[in-house]
């Protein structure tokens, strides 16, 4: 396969889909490459209450599907492929699991993936009690005690959602206060099913056929402890998947892509948008804005070369 486009967008979340919407309405010959499925991380959010235009809130899965529907309405082609690298010749060559695609400009909007705890048992019990998607798997833990690891918006949203099924949700957080937005904190502190384990990190996850126990360590006292749970929902943040870009772009220390206000990277014709760019506030609303900005900047670049 060796196809040539004016613009290639990598990633089918809100940033990539918004870029695709703008590009296809501008009649740019565009291809959107997504590795797994359209919609992005927001699909996993139970409720989105801070995206303008939905005063009652909207479920993340519905919002993701609506953004995808709108983006593809003007004839945006999509391909399922995993991007493995980008090379610069006269044009940009995007190397994927399904072959090579060429374009004048590339918008990288591949977002980020769940950070792992990196502890023994985490991989072993994936799908057998360890989960990164409370929305998907919460219902399997009806009337059980489960743990949520993390203290940000995703962790607290997950904990609140899981109280619908679980008898008790233990939030394990490495600090003594939450990072989550105040509205969510208030809801969590008021919820009788949620219990907090402060200043603690997970040392290991153990069990037999399924998760039975989480071993913890208090970061202040160094003391070990354990809690009996049948599920562990991990929500300790996101990391960008940009390793394959290291020889093309200078990344920041975490791996995010630095851009200017026009979403331009240091390489002409290569743009980054959404969660993957350095300094993103990682919200759907900002991802959508980044995508639109990148598409318009890319369009100007394409018509100038």
């Amino acid at each position: 396969m060796n196809e040539t486009y004016q613009l290639i967008i990598i990633g089918g979340g809100p940033a990539g889909l918004s870029a695709g919407l703008y590009a296809s309405r501008s009649k740019l010959d565009t291809l959107l490459i997504e590795k797994a499925g359209l919609g992005g991380q927001i699909l996993n959010a139970e409720m989105v209450e801070n995206y303008p235009g939905f005063p009652q809130g909207i479920s993340g899965s519905e919002l993701g599907a609506l953004i995808a529907q709108q983006a593809t309405k003007y004839g945006l082609p999509t391909a399922f492929a995993e991007v493995q690298g980008i090379e610069i010749k006269d044009e940009k060559i995007v190397i994927t699991s399904e072959g090579q695609y060429r374009a004048k400009a590339v918008i990288i909007a591949a977002g980020s993936e769940h950070s792992k705890l990196g502890v023994p048992g985490e991989e072993e019990f994936l799908g057998r009690g360890v989960s990164y998607c409370a929305m998907c798997d919460g219902a399997f833990f009806r009337d059980q005690v489960i743990a949520v690891v993390g203290g940000g918006n995703v962790a607290i949203n997950d904990a609140l959602f899981l109280t619908r099924f679980a008898t008790k949700v233990m939030v394990i957080h490495r600090r003594d206060q939450l990072r989550a937005t105040k509205v969510l904190q208030d809801r969590a502190f008021a919820n009788p099913k949620i219990e907090f384990v402060w200043d603690s990190v997970v040392n290991s996850i153990t069990g037999d056929k399924q998760v039975r126990e989480v071993k913890l360590r208090n970061v202040k006292t160094g003391k070990g402890s354990s809690v009996e749970v049948s599920g562990v929902f991990v929500a300790v943040g996101l990391r960008p998947n940009t390793d394959y870009l290291r020889n093309l772009l200078t990344l920041d220390e975490v791996g995010f892509i630095p851009v200017n206000g026009q979403m331009e990277t240091e390489v002409p014709g290569i743009y980054a948008a959404g969660d993957i760019r350095a300094g993103s506030i990682r919200q759907v609303v900002s991802a959508a804005g980044d995508g639109a900005t990148a598409a318009i900047t890319a369009e100007r670049f394409i018509s100038s070369v």
Binding site: A36, G37, L38, G39, L43, N44, G60, S61, G64, A65, F80, C133, M135, C136, A139
Partner: peptide, 17 residues
Amino acid sequence: WAPWCAPCRAIAPAVEE
């Protein structure tokens, strides 16, 4: 899969292909 699971819906087209 289940109808309320968004990643299940997202993976479906790849499985169909």
